[in-house]
Amino acid sequence: MAGLIVEVHVPLVPATGLAADAYPFPWIDDVETFLAELEGTIDVLDEGEECGDVYVFAVGGADEADEIGQGRRVELGVS
């Protein structure tokens, strides 16, 4: 049986207060860093990817409560 995979869908909303020529989604790097710090507790299954108007991150390798809990932390912007 395959393990649970949790996808975290984050709206692709540009960060505010950036210079006109700045990359509009610097928060993606912040989320990827946060998830990388969780390696060992959960598995980050792939690099995130843009999918329409959202950016998708996927985690697995832990029990359901841990995976959903970490996904919720990303959603709330808590690290």
Results as ranks from 00 to 15, higher is better:
E67P: 03
V13W: 00
D43P: 01
A15T: 01
L76S: 09
L45F: 07
V13Q: 09
A58N: 05
I42K: 02
I42Q: 03
T41L: 15
G61E: 05
G61I: 06
E64L: 02
L35W: 02
T41N: 13
Y23N: 14
V8I: 13
L38Q: 14
E67T: 08
A22N: 00
Y23V: 04
D63T: 05
A22W: 06
A2P: 05
L45P: 00
L18W: 01
V6S: 05
G17F: 00
G69R: 01
E67C: 11
Y55T: 02
G17A: 02
E47G: 12
P24A: 05
D29G: 14
D53L: 10
L18R: 00
A65E: 14
S79V: 13
F25I: 01
D43N: 08
E75S: 13
F34C: 10
V6E: 12
D29Q: 12
M1L: 11
G48C: 03
Y55K: 00
D46Q: 10
L45H: 07
V74P: 10
G61Y: 04
D63M: 05
D63R: 08
I28T: 01
G52D: 05
T16L: 07
E39K: 06
E75D: 12
F25T: 04
V78F: 13
D66N: 10
C51K: 12
V6A: 04
A65P: 03
E7H: 13
G3T: 10
A65V: 08
V78R: 11
V44Q: 04
G52Q: 04
T16I: 07
A19Q: 13
E47K: 15
F57T: 03
R72W: 12
T33D: 15
L38Y: 07
P14Q: 02
G3F: 07
V59A: 05
A58S: 15
G48Q: 01
L45C: 15
I5K: 11
F25D: 02
Y23I: 02
A15G: 03
A65D: 15
D29W: 11
E64S: 11
T41A: 13
V31N: 01
D53R: 07
G77F: 04
F34R: 05
G3N: 07
R72S: 14
F25H: 15
A2G: 08
D46H: 14
Q70W: 12
I28L: 09
P14N: 03
D66R: 04
F34S: 07
A36G: 06
T33Q: 11
E47L: 14
V13F: 08
L38H: 12
V6T: 12
V31K: 02
L45Y: 09
V31A: 00
V78D: 11
V10F: 09
T16F: 07
I5L: 13
G69F: 04
A20D: 10
I68Q: 15
M1D: 11
G40D: 02
P26F: 07
V59W: 10
Y55E: 03
V54Q: 09
E49S: 08
E75P: 02
D43K: 06
